[in-house]
Measured scan of single mutants.
Amino acid sequence: PKDEAKKKVKEAIKRGDEETAKRIAKKYNLDWDDAKREADEER
């Protein structure tokens, strides 16, 4: 599900692992900028 994928993307971003985050986002066709902004807001 997309929500689960987005959570994984945000967790990867918070760990500083943007490569993984981008790969997950691409795989699930998520909006990378959107997920990154959300992760930054939660930090």
Rank of each mutant, 00 (worst) to 15 (best):
K36V: 13
A39Q: 05
D40E: 13
K36R: 08
E41P: 06
R23Y: 03
E38Y: 04
W32K: 00
D31E: 06
K22S: 04
K36A: 07
K2N: 12
R23T: 09
K10S: 08
A5G: 09
K27R: 11
E42L: 07
E11I: 04
D40L: 14
D34H: 06
R37V: 07
A25Q: 01
K6F: 13
K27G: 02
G16Y: 03
D3P: 04
K27A: 12
I24L: 14
I13G: 00
A21H: 00
Y28E: 15
N29H: 11
K7N: 11
K7S: 09
D31V: 03
I24M: 08
K27M: 14
D3R: 09
K2Q: 13
Y28W: 04
D17W: 06
E11A: 10
K14T: 08
E19Y: 04
K14F: 12
E18C: 15
N29M: 06
R37N: 09
N29S: 08
R15G: 05
E11G: 02
Y28R: 15
E41V: 09
D34P: 02
R43P: 11
T20D: 09
K6Q: 07
R23N: 09
K22G: 01
A35N: 04
V9Q: 00
D33E: 14
R15S: 09
A12V: 02
Y28V: 15
K26H: 08
R37M: 10
K2E: 13
K8I: 11
G16C: 12
A5Q: 06
K27S: 07
E11N: 06
A39G: 04
E41R: 11
D34E: 15
D33A: 09
W32G: 01
K10V: 14
K27Q: 14
D31A: 03
A21V: 00
A25L: 02
R23L: 07
E4H: 10
A12D: 01
G16F: 03
K36S: 06
K8T: 08
E18N: 09
G16D: 04
V9Y: 05
T20W: 09
K26T: 08
D3N: 11
D34L: 10
A25K: 02
P1N: 14
I24R: 01
K22I: 08
A25D: 02
K14N: 11
K10G: 04
K10T: 07
D33C: 14
D3T: 10
Y28T: 13
N29Y: 06
R15W: 05
A39R: 03
R37E: 07
E18H: 12
E42D: 10
R43N: 12
G16Q: 02
D33T: 08
K8P: 01
D3F: 12
K36C: 09
A25P: 00
P1E: 15
R37T: 06
P1W: 14
P1V: 14
E42G: 06
R23F: 03
T20K: 06
W32S: 01
V9I: 14
L30R: 00
A39H: 04
E4T: 09
E38V: 06
T20L: 14
A25I: 03
E11H: 04
E38M: 07
P1S: 15
R43I: 14
A35T: 12
A25T: 03
D33W: 06
D40Y: 11
D17R: 02
I13N: 01
A39Y: 11
R15P: 01
E41L: 13
K2G: 10
R15V: 06
K7A: 11
K36W: 13
Y28C: 15
D34V: 11
P1Y: 11
K14Q: 13
T20C: 14
D40A: 10
E42I: 06
K22L: 08
D31I: 04
E38N: 05
E38P: 03
K10N: 07
G16V: 01
T20E: 15
R23P: 00
E41T: 09
E18K: 05
K22W: 02
A35Q: 06
E11R: 04
L30N: 02
D33Q: 09
G16A: 03
D34K: 09
I24N: 01
E18R: 04
R37Q: 10
V9M: 13
Y28N: 15
T20R: 06
K2H: 12
V9L: 14
D3S: 12
D33V: 07
I24V: 05
I13R: 01
E38F: 06
L30Y: 05
D31W: 00
Y28Q: 12
I13C: 04
D31S: 09
K2L: 15
A21C: 02
P1K: 13
E41K: 11
K14I: 13
A21I: 00
E38D: 10
V9W: 05
I13M: 09
D17C: 09
A21Q: 00
E18D: 08
K7L: 11
K26D: 14
D33G: 05
E4Q: 11
E42R: 05
A39K: 03
D17F: 05
I13W: 04
V9P: 00
A5F: 09
E19T: 09
A21R: 00
E38G: 05
K2F: 13
K8A: 13
E11W: 00
K10I: 15
K27P: 00
D17P: 00
A39D: 06
K27L: 14
R23E: 12
L30I: 15
E42K: 05
Y28I: 15
K6N: 04
D40N: 10
D40K: 07
W32E: 02
V9R: 00
D17H: 05
K8G: 04
K27F: 11
R23Q: 12
K27T: 07
R43W: 13
A5E: 04
V9F: 11
L30M: 06
K22V: 05
K14P: 01
A21M: 00
R15L: 09
K26W: 02
K7R: 14
E38Q: 07
A5K: 03
I24F: 01
W32D: 02
D33Y: 06
K7Q: 12
K14R: 13
D31M: 02
A12E: 03
E41D: 10
V9T: 03
K6M: 15
I24D: 02
Y28M: 05
T20N: 07
D40C: 13
